[in-house]
Simulated scan of single mutants.
Amino acid sequence: MTEQATPPASRFQARAIATLWRTLSRWPVRWLWRIAALVGPQVYRFSKRERKVTEINLKVVYPDAPANQRQSLAKQSLQHSTATMLELGHAWMAPPEKVEASILAVHGRDKLDSARAEGRGVIVLAPHFGNWEVLNFWLSSHFPFTAMYEPPKIAGLEPIIRHGRERMGAKLVPTNPRGVAALLKALKRSEAIGILPDQEPDWGSGVFAPFYGRDSYTATLLPKLVARTQARVVTGVALRIPGKGFEIHFLDADERVYSADDTESATGVNASVEASIALDPAQYQWEYKRYRKVVEEQQGLPNANDFRLY
């Protein structure tokens, strides 16, 4: 969609959001965290959808935790999600040296370096944890890096987001067979690619696999990429150090991700996501509906009424 075809209201909305990001990109990350600490409780109070879905998911994955602990975790999670939104300008628009300076440490880089030294590509599973845009910045700053990209709903933001994600050299490819072919070519060149492991795929592109003990519809792209390239798989996150910056962590993926069986591989993917969440459960984006397709399939979940908003 061209800007001329974009409704005036959408163009105004895109300009307003871009102006906000540009303004916030000039602020230190410690200020952004302070704002998130003020805005986060309001998001919890007034954003019914985000609050309810977060609380539903936390009840599913931590059923034995006291209700007051889950509520506290929900509030913390929405504060971190607020921080991520405020930090988008930092990741996409701030001077590169400023973003680099906000990355306080990188753990596990040797996993990527050794794989490439062996002539193998690296598949980075990047869940919605911490600030994944900072992770994209670091990866594309230090490695040839390719990731799939789906244009935003607000068409006027598309060039801004694309420029922000590509400015350090990342190559964005569409979420279709042409994009998959580009990922395969990148891996065969011993490069790094990024995959969102916790985003529900369309029907026919996934299998049901356990996530915290409950079935969740999970993409099956990974075993196809591994089978054709022998790539190494790691999980990557940018852990937020509140008020200070970020630490990048690369973790070995669960060994089951290398299975040729789709369900076994998907189970390994979800286990890998769980391992990254364990770094700080409050930094995971719990307001995403990981169990929606289970409900659509009427799998007969215990406590099915807990999913009424799905």
Rank of each mutant, 00 (worst) to 15 (best):
T2N: 14
P7H: 10
S10D: 10
A14H: 03
L20Y: 04
T23G: 11
R26E: 12
W33K: 04
R34S: 12
A36T: 04
L38V: 15
V39P: 00
Y44T: 08
K48E: 15
R51Y: 12
K52Y: 08
T54W: 06
E55I: 12
N57A: 05
L58K: 04
K59D: 14
K59S: 15
V60I: 15
V61N: 05
V61R: 01
P63F: 09
A65R: 15
A67Q: 13
Q69Y: 08
A74H: 01
K75C: 08
Q76T: 07
S81W: 05
T84W: 03
T84Q: 04
L86W: 00
L86M: 05
L86N: 00
E87K: 11
L88P: 01
H90T: 12
W92G: 03
M93C: 08
A94H: 06
V99L: 14
E100L: 08
A101Y: 13
I103T: 07
A105Y: 05
G108N: 05
G108H: 04
K111H: 12
R116Y: 11
F129P: 00
W132D: 02
L135F: 03
S140E: 02
S141E: 07
F143T: 01
M148D: 06
M148H: 07
P151I: 01
A155M: 01
I160V: 14
E166V: 00
R167W: 11
P174G: 09
N176E: 14
G179T: 13
A181S: 13
L184N: 06
L187H: 01
S190N: 15
I193Y: 00
I195Q: 00
I195R: 00
I195A: 01
L196K: 05
L196R: 06
Q199T: 14
Q199M: 11
E200R: 07
D202T: 13
D202N: 14
A209K: 02
A209G: 05
P210E: 15
D215P: 07
T218Q: 04
T218H: 03
K224L: 15
V226A: 08
R228C: 07
Q230L: 14
V234H: 01
L239N: 03
I241F: 07
F246K: 01
E247S: 10
D254G: 01
S259D: 13
S259M: 11
S259E: 12
D261T: 13
S265E: 08
G268H: 09
G268P: 06
V269W: 04
A271E: 01
V273C: 02
A275S: 10
A275C: 03
I277L: 11
I277F: 07
L279W: 09
D280M: 05
Q283R: 11
Y284R: 09
E287Y: 09
Y288L: 09
Y291C: 06
V295H: 02
V295P: 00
E296M: 10
E297K: 10
Q298G: 13
G300C: 11
G300H: 09
N303G: 07
D306S: 11
F307G: 02
F307H: 04
